[in-house]
Design a protein around this nucleic acid. Structure first.
Length: 572
RNA sequence: CGGGGUAUAGCGCAGUCUGGUAGCGCACUACACUGGGGGUGUAGUGGUCGCAGGUUCAAAUCCUGCUACUCCGACCA
């Protein structure tokens, strides 16, 4: 492509409303422009990247045996009423009416449409399994669109839906998708992790999220230093650092601790680490038969953080988890929040790590007092032990291998075993071997295509701009002729090379603009083209042209006569 | 939805308090110089100051209402 006939409107200054680096750089590199909040136009160079990502996704999906389809963006409300989601889905679902007053929505996802399609077209177990996918625009009316393409309202997604006669068969396709996704992200040149995810309200048997690792990621992921273990921090199991508590070495002592409430206060007052203290949190219990909500105490080590998703799973606790108010606590325990400790007369659970502490500082359940030298068993009965905290760096990995490291990730893929949620609601059945109607098992598999583009930048940039992975760069190689408008020699050499590289099937960016060298170099670096060839009179007279990679290293001279072989090696 | 901020040329901003001819840098156009890292000079183009009312001889500036954008949080995945 000739730069003089192509639009890449680069910006020197960063638009003030761009917060994250990918957003800033895509704007600056002339790849996208904002139309309205959460809505972006793709400019030529940006679209090239998007299409390269799509191509890789498409190739690998096809290779896995999935079939590509294309379903409408606008979907009738009837289908959503059938699945129950018309009522279930909140304001994120953009609802519209046509001229006849009939209700429709803009599809945030396509379970209903595909299920409708399949129930009409598939009748026998003999036809299964089948896996359908599309690469298409989705719309979700996000509460707060932000971070540019990272959380837009309109975005490109690859979504796939598989149908099965049995759970075993679903598992098989699920595993195949897991492998396909791993292959896709590897080909995209991204550093990623597949993590065990919470299946949440939909239920189902298994779910994995695929995260691109980047400091700006919205999710925290825990993984092991020595094994494949990786899980969303919300789900990662937290182990105690030892089997059982050490034998007591201190006597229990009651100490007056005026104005000492928080864990920070307590550890400062007693000059002990927060890990040598316990904190007691009070949450609401489920409403009982008399319509009253009692309280439940949760004991954690002072330095640990409560995980509310884990708490939701403890029997008897109100869902979603809610902390009791100061008044409720005072009324039941007779003391303030800052002095709570073990041995309360209400149902109590203790975290695994808090259960193996010895000689710790705890609240005395009496305002203004704490106990030191507290030991379970001797000084209080050990309540039921549960896992209710977030994992922290340095914890033992749940699979017993290595320790936990926490990094941030951007969710770019999610695979899910749906089970029969939609197929049963929408009566998508087949006849099984026994001639009986049977509801199909379903799986669904999503990839945020436009989000991948942004996440690739979050992971690969420097102070000069974007550094695209080779597989998705808008152009593979740039030719920069210097002073071509004046130098016939340079012009000839550049044109010749341009023709040659194009003939090799490469995506070439030929900067034939009458700009100063600095402008061209800066643009190419900002846009992030991986390979750069500079043709100038100076080196040309010595029979050379100059090559440099975007990732750095010094420029190297290549003899004009050897350029063919050099290029072939580069893209071998 | 709660709390903050912003809206003036394509981009980044000043001017608003204290009303009086709409400005600066970048970009853009023309010409000249320059030609291996966003170069220099000269001359230009481009704005209903977010919208609608109001006050005033006079409103970017003061008042009222609205809208859009944005940040933090809640929510969602």
């Amino acid at each position: 492509m000739r730069a003089s006939q192509y639009l890449i409107p680069t910006l020197k200054e960063t638009p003030s409303d761009a917060e994250v680096i990918s957003h800033q750089l895509m704007l600056r590199a002339g790849m996208i422009r904002k139309l309205a909040s959460g809505l972006y136009s793709w400019l030529p160079a940006g679209l090239r990247v998007l299409q390269k990502v799509e191509a890789i996704v498409r190739e690998e999906m096809n290779r896995s045996g999935a079939m590509e389809v294309l379903m409408p963006v606008v979907q009738p409300a009837d289908l959503w009423e059938e699945s129950g989601r018309w009522a279930e889905y909140g304001p994120e679902l953009l609802r519209i009416k046509d001229r006849h007053g009939r209700e429709f929505c803009l599809g945030p996802t396509h379970e209903e449409v595909i299920t409708d399609l399949v129930r009409d077209s598939i009748n026998s177990y003999k036809q299964l399994p089948m896996n359908f996918y599309q690469i298409q625009t989705k719309f979700r009316d996000e509460v707060r669109p932000r971070f540019g393409l990272m959380r837009g309202r309109e975005f490109t997604m690859k979504d796939a839906y598989s149908f099965h006669a049995s759970q075993d068969c679903l598992q098989e396709t699920y595993d195949k998708m897991y492998d396909t996704y791993s292959r896709i992200f590897t080909r995209l040149g991204l550093e990623f992790r597949a993590v065990d995810a919470d299946t949440g309200s939909i239920g189902g048997n298994a779910s994995h999220e695929f995260h691109v690792l980047a400091d700006s990621g919205e999710d925290a992921i825990a993984f092991s230093t020595e094994s494949d273990f990786a899980a969303n921090i919300e789900k990662a199991e937290a182990l105690a650092d030892k089997e059982q508590a050490d034998a007591p070495s201190q006597e229990l002592e009651k100490v007056a601790t005026p104005a000492t409430h928080s864990i920070d206060d307590v550890s400062a007052f007693f000059k002990v680490a927060a890990a040598q203290t316990l904190k007691t949190l009070i949450v609401l219990a489920e409403t009982n038969e008399e319509g009253k909500q009692e309280l439940i105490a949760l004991v954690l080590r002072g330095d640990h953080e409560l995980n509310d998703i884990k708490v939701d799973k403890i029997p008897g606790v109100a869902v979603p988890m809610a902390m009791a108010s100061d008044e409720e606590i005072k009324a039941v325990t007779g003391c303030g929040v800052g002095s709570l400790g073990p041995n309360l007369k209400i149902k109590t659970y203790v975290d695994r790590s808090a259960a193996v502490c010895s000689d710790v500082v705890v609240g005395a359940n009496e305002d203004g007092f704490h106990l030191t030298g507290f030991n379970w068993g001797r000084d209080g009965e050990l309540p039921e032990v549960v896992d209710i905290r977030n994992v922290v760096e340095g914890d033992k990995s749940p699979d017993g291998k290595g320790t936990i490291v926490i990094k941030r990730g951007i969710e770019v893929g999610h695979i899910f075993q749906l089970g029969t949620k939609y197929s049963s609601a929408m009566k998508a059945t087949i006849l099984n071997e026994n001639g009986k109607a049977q509801v199909m098992e379903m799986g669904c598999y999503g990839i945020g295509v436009s989000r991948i583009v942004a996440s690739a930048i979050e992971q690969n940039y420097d102070d000069k701009g974007i550094i695209w992975p080779e597989s998705i760069a808008p152009f593979q190689i740039a030719i920069v002729p210097l002073n071509m408008q004046k130098s016939e020699m340079v012009k000839e050499a550049a044109e010749e090379l341009y023709a040659k590289l194009q003939a090799k099937g490469l995506d070439v960016y030929f900067d034939d603009r009458n700009e100063r060298p600095g402008v061209k170099f800066a643009d190419i670096e900002l846009v992030g083209i991986p390979h750069r060839i500079v043709i100038g009179e100076r080196s040309l007279k010595e029979g050379n042209i100059e090559y440099k990679h975007r990732k750095g290293g010094d420029a190297q001279d290549i003899a004009v006569t050897e350029i063919d072989g050099f290029i072939d090696d580069l893209f071998a």
